[in-house]
Design a protein around this nucleic acid. Structure first.
Length: 171
DNA sequence: TCGACGATTGCC
DNA sequence: GCAATCGTCGAG
């Protein structure tokens, strides 16, 4: 197992998102408690023009992190109840992020953050340096098969809602 | 300071 | 079908 480095996340979100499928999300709770989950479902949010992307409303304290280098974590609260886990991609000044919607045996972006105890304290966390959250790839090279669909819950995004930027792993 | 609303979930 | 529940952001 090898931790993914900066270069992996510095690419365009439409390359990074499908590449995250089949990778392992690693959560370290303590010295003796480390859990790993296969990433099974993600969505891409791409730039200021993408009306479904929070950055389309401009640069604010909340969206600031998306304007940074790839490999950082963007976390926000939705509906006053659920934390959404996103991974910033691309390079400085280009706001992009991947929403992690599903992991092994656990689908639903709100449920997985609850299970992994991920909250506001992870905002800005660096996946390359963090000692409690990072992503690993298997040493075994296997072909990843996935399907694409429109993104979920963004009917307000006009023509952008039809982009097939949701990527789901095939079993 | 105020009010509208949301990248969801689970229960009716 | 819809309520829960609160941080964020633009308007006033």
């Amino acid at each position: 197992m090898k931790r993914l480095q900066r270069e992996f996340f510095s690419r365009d979100v439409l390359e990074v998102a499908p590449d995250l499928l089949g990778k392992n999300l690693v959560r370290k709770f303590s010295k003796n408690k480390i859990e790993k989950y296969l990433i099974t479902e993600v969505e891409a949010y791409r730039g200021k023009e993408d009306l479904a992307c929070h950055a389309s409303k401009g640069r604010t304290p909340r969206t600031e992190i998306m304007y940074h280098n790839g490999g950082l974590i963007y976390v926000y609260l939705i509906y006053g109840m659920y934390w959404m886990l996103n991974i910033v991609t691309s390079i400085n000044e280009i706001p992009q992020a991947v929403l992690i919607r599903g992991i092994t045996n656990f689908n639903g972006p709100g449920k997985l953050t609850k299970k992994l105890s991920i909250d506001k304290s992870f905002y800005g966390e660096d996946l390359i340096k963090s000692d409690r959250l990072w992503i690993e790839s298997d040493d075994i090279i296997s072909e990843i098969k996935y399907k694409t669909t429109p993104r979920i819950g963004i009917d307000y995004a006009g023509e952008w809602k039809d982009k097939t930027w949701r990527f789901v792993l095939k079993d």
